[in-house]
């Protein structure tokens, strides 16, 4: 990490320091693959947010005239306004892909956010307080982790009804567990550093120490893990939707669209599979590249 450090002599006026975050940002933007991933992610997000304005049809509008004739009249075409063709029910696949991408990204990001907020605080608290509290808190995590969550989530969706809220709840419930473990492990090494002891000696309250001294120093690894968690959540949701338990009609997600596409694979309408799959894959790839780039940028010693 040879940086051109500005060793300008201290003159009048305050000198702006280079924070570790600024250093990491410079390193990140030097990584071409990561920047490409970031650009793809921005484009996919723009597509998910604003793509709907370019659609000629509502995502839930059923064109009965196309039903049963998708293979020759519902093909992707600019003239008909069905840019990505239509699905098995004669709905515009472009509008539905926009909607599906939006929901998949939302699920991924909400899951990762829950993980970051709950997992980090829980892990930092357990690690910092230590002793019996730590034991109880981490054994709870172990117990929750040992429950087969796919099974519980399916039961929840069956019993309480299939709603997007239930899905978020289910995903939120599992996503923070491994994050809590990671945060705790890091906290254990940070809490023995002298600057934490200095804060204790100063008399800084315990919660402030966690928030001011522990969490900012954990954040690097947490962010890296979160970017890798987003695609995991998207895959998870896709799997649930693929089983038919996730997002319900007329809403859709990439997983549900891919499921619809695979069912029609032998009917000569492969676009129904390929368009959602394309967005699914580039989103996941982009997240992985960004995650890798962030890991290299935030933890220069690891390279």
């Amino acid at each position: 990490m040879s940086m051109q450090t500005d060793t300008a002599p201290a003159q009048m006026g305050e000198i702006q320091g280079r924070s570790l975050w600024a250093d990491a940002r410079t390193r990140f933007f030097r990584n071409k693959a990561a920047v490409a991933g970031l650009i793809v992610l921005i484009l996919v997000s723009l597509f998910a947010i604003f793509g709907g304005y370019f659609a000629k049809f509502e995502p839930d509008y059923v064109d009965f005239s196309l039903m049963g004739a998708q293979a020759y009249r519902g093909v992707p075409s600019i003239e008909t306004g069905h840019y990505f063709g239509v699905d098995i029910d004669g709905r515009d696949l472009y509008a539905r892909t926009v909607q599906g991408t939006r929901i998949s990204l939302l699920v991924g990001i909400v899951g990762a956010m829950v993980a970051v907020i709950v997992g980090t605080l829980y892990g930092a608290l357990a690690g910092y307080v230590g002793g019996r509290t730590d034991g109880i808190m981490m054994r709870t995590v172990d117990i929750l982790m040992s429950i087969p969550f796919m099974f519980v989530l399916i039961l929840m969706l069956v019993i309480f009804g299939r709603s997007i809220f239930m899905l978020f709840l289910g995903i939120g419930l599992i996503s923070w567990l491994s994050m809590a473990r990671i945060a705790r492990g890091q906290t254990l090494s940070i809490k023995n550093k002298e600057f934490v002891e200095a804060a204790v000696a100063i008399g800084v309250p315990r919660m402030t120490i966690i928030l001011r001294h522990i969490v900012p120093n954990l954040l690097g690894i947490v962010i890296v893990y979160a970017t890798l968690l987003v695609p995991e959540m998207i895959i998870f949701e896709s799997f649930i939707s693929y089983l038919g338990l996730g997002i319900q009609e007329p809403n859709t997600s990439l997983g549900a669209l891919i499921n619809g596409g695979t069912e029609q694979m032998n009917n000569g309408t492969l676009w129904m599979l390929f368009f959602p799959l394309f967005f699914f894959l580039i989103t996941l790839f982009a997240f992985f590249f960004v995650g890798d780039g962030l890991r290299d940028a935030l933890d220069p010693k690891d390279r």
Partner: peptide, 23 residues
């Protein structure tokens, strides 16, 4: 708390005693 104000400490490892994320 008042005692903590009256007694302060300087540590052995100068860099480790400063939080790297704070100015």
């Amino acid at each position: 708390r008042r005692h903590r104000r009256d007694v302060q400490m300087v540590f052995q490892d100068p860099l480790a005693a400063l939080n790297p994320r704070m100015t």
